[in-house]
Design a protein around this nucleic acid. Sequence first.
DNA 1: TAGTATGATGTAAGCGCTTTCATTTATAGC
DNA 2: GCTATAAATGAAAGCGCTTACATCATACTA
Lengths: 335, 335
Amino acid sequence: MATIYQVSELAGVSLATVSRVMNNNARVSEATRNKVLAAMEQLGYRPNSIAQSLASNRSNSVGILVSELHGPFYGEMLSGIENECRAAGKHVIIAAGHSEEASEKDGIEFLISRSCDALILHVEAVSDDYLIKLASGNMPIVLINRFIPRLANNCISLDNELGGYLATKQLLQQGHTQLAYMAGPMWKSDAKDRYHGHLRAMAEHGLSFNPALLAEGDFQDSSGSACMQQLLAKGLPFSALVCANDEMAAGAMEVARAHGLNVPQDLSIVGFDNLILARYIYPKLTTIDYPIGEMGRMAARWVLKNIYQQQALQLKNVFEPVLVCRDSASAIAAG
Amino acid sequence: MATIYQVSELAGVSLATVSRVMNNNARVSEATRNKVLAAMEQLGYRPNSIAQSLASNRSNSVGILVSELHGPFYGEMLSGIENECRAAGKHVIIAAGHSEEASEKDGIEFLISRSCDALILHVEAVSDDYLIKLASGNMPIVLINRFIPRLANNCISLDNELGGYLATKQLLQQGHTQLAYMAGPMWKSDAKDRYHGHLRAMAEHGLSFNPALLAEGDFQDSSGSACMQQLLAKGLPFSALVCANDEMAAGAMEVARAHGLNVPQDLSIVGFDNLILARYIYPKLTTIDYPIGEMGRMAARWVLKNIYQQQALQLKNVFEPVLVCRDSASAIAAG
DNA sequence: TAGTATGATGTAAGCGCTTTCATTTATAGC
DNA sequence: GCTATAAATGAAAGCGCTTACATCATACTA
């Protein structure tokens, strides 16, 4: 690979001048600029971005930490971020945190040591305090899907409570009165918030929540199946089920079908996230849309605006989920 | 951030010695090593990997180019690669090529300029020649899901032809004789190979292929729906449909259902890829398993073995797909 | 006991770029 | 034509590391 030095020699100018035309951050005469560009062209010169980063202490790359690289949810998010960054000439470096504290911290350290200019984090296991401390350092961070009051400006989050509320309200409005709730792992704030939304809707309709109709899963479809088994085993009647995410809803639906229950005639089900699979399962899942791709894009914009000085961008910190009506929930049968 | 210099000062040794304990590639006395480790600990030292890369001309990171960041297929693949690399202390830098030649080349250039030690590429738009030329340079590359004879050693591929054959054969063995085929975009080699497998199975069973029962889609579910419409519109009878991938199968299934066809009673459908969605759609999709996660892992191992000298690893270049029987294909109804 | 491996550590020259500061050259004002 | 000012360029010092190579101490050999 040609280096800046060879370019400068060929063009008959100094290193500094070549650097100037690359970065166009200082005046260079038109004639010199052309000489340099020609030399670059001729040598097939490509700047070594590692060296640029070391020298400038800026890497033009933003670090992203997600829980997993697979799964529809993170894929959408990554894609949103990458698109936006790429369009602005910034690059992404990705690490996975696997929802484990040690691994998340390790990933963050890695991204920092990689000289990222900013970090976009989707972390779950790490504490608020840790993040607050991190944010007070000199690495800018933006948090996706997490809300920490003291870091409100750095958070791009969804109103999960509202989502839980909307999901439940839909069922209530369809006449259901006996609802079961399948929660996500309660140590995750989104799982908790969604559950609280559910409770609020119930209360608003004057219904008391029956703890026996609550099951706690882990957001995976297998746990949706397991929870459904549990719920059914209790023998308590319920005509509707609110699931804290789509995957558990899919697992639950399968078990329901195996038990001879028709969805939605015998049991209405509402999910949460509006993953791609919600359109594939049968019947198509009524769910709450989580605009994660859009939120990823917004996080990227946050970075572009705050770190790369693209002032014009409009930011939005909290997104509101909306209900997507499909076929898995219907009005309760007469009687 | 503390630098190696401060560590060396605190420990009372030279820069070189600190570097030696970090890399453990030279003997350092136990006493010195401990002093250095203690100093690192005390300062919370983390090596600056940019500087390491620049100095050593190795980055301990492998570049990955995928077509898209979202979608179940690439997610699995990325996840497989990341897991394997992470376990070996290597990191991944990801770029998306969007199946466009310019974009793929650009991504490759980016990864090269980032001083990756090797590249794992899932490219579709770029020519064989380009890749052969690239491989002859000094950046090691491994290709996933693509087979180029002259680069056979660098290819981790699936026997797509066999997959197409197996899918078709299953249907044939179930007694079907009138099969339709829904292909992927024929300019993609995997789409072509799968189709050829189909033809081979047909020929083997003495059946001639009816071109009117061929539809070419683009691997997306919407095109699966569109192709199914086309096929149905022709009014030609067929009792089974082989789809070049699961997503088109899902789209096709929906349209079939809308036309009052029961799957599999009226129409058997076989997909390809065994994406996660194959288990979610109803009826569950009979399909060909594409072990993409495993192949990603293998690509990572290729790099570990060939670039990072982990000799012990066992490599495998071509994977064989297997049939996964679920509920969307059944023996043809009597008569 | 001198002579020689051998192990442990230090010295210093880069890696390819950015950026400050100094210097040269062009432009304008009078 | 001569100075004051601005514009264009060059020189050189890093950025935080790695890695020959040199040096020094120690342990063996004969």
